[in-house]
Design a protein around this nucleic acid. Structure first.
Lengths: 122, 122
DNA sequence: AGAATGTACAACCAGTTGGTTGTAGGTTGT
DNA sequence: ACAACCTACAACCAACTGGTTGTACATTCT
């Protein structure tokens, strides 16, 4: 699959893979805040915090809005929810694994070869 | 916080941020498989697939077991669940945002300062 | 008008990532 | 014994990350 959806997923999980960004996201889910108000809470330059917020924004986890000279950011819960949904889908795949084994018990092992045919995706 | 828990979380989301790894994880949640059986499904070298599996393993999303000459890997649903749980906690933070506004109305703002004391993380 | 504030962006740097090829070692089948 | 198979790991590479400093520009305050 060469889908833009997968690109978005890459970006979301990448954004979540840094603890500073997770912390920023937590605060921005708790309430709107300007980038400069956010910055003093971390042991790094304002520019670094700006970049983190941008990564979160590109992933769609945060939105920015302009008020005068300040850029107000806030977390987007829907984006977090859809990320959680992706993980739930992974969990369901595992359920499939279990029920397939059950299936083999009372349905015979004929479809086992078919299972191996899960080839590729290119 | 300098917790190893956060290190693990970094690793989990990083592992999930690559579509090839997500695909491998899907298959390994669906059923156990050797690395060499996995490799032909992707347009990259066996070594590259090996590395991806290792990343998933270090994140705890996959476990490996040895049978003769082959390394059988399988997805760990519990790890996926705990990742999903982290996202659910983020969602709740947003609920907190809403209920905090409500809370100020009927409960007073005393514990609000304590909550603000979430300073920093070093 | 001038100083202070808040943001944006370019340039740079060390470390990591995702990929490659090559070499080596243990296990299985003939 | 020997070939085939599966894994492991080192070395290398281009691209990207997370951080820095410096410069520039718009907005607000006095």
């Amino acid at each position: 699959m060469r889908t833009p959806t997968e690109d978005r997923t890459d970006a979301v999980f990448h954004a979540l893979s840094d603890r500073t960004r997770r912390d920023i996201l937590r605060r921005l889910l708790g309430g709107e805040s300007s980038v400069s108000a956010l910055a003093p809470m971390y042991e790094m330059s304002l520019t670094a915090v700006q970049k983190h917020v941008n990564v979160l924004e590109r992933a769609g986890l945060v939105t920015k809005r302009r008020r005068g000279r300040e850029a107000l950011a806030r977390g987007d819960v829907e984006a977090v929810r859809s990320a959680a949904h992706l993980l739930r889908e992974l969990e369901e795949l595992w359920r499939g694994h279990v029920s397939r084994i059950d299936g083999l018990v009372d349905a015979g092992s004929q479809e086992e070869d078919d299972h191996a045919g899960h080839r590729h995706q290119h």
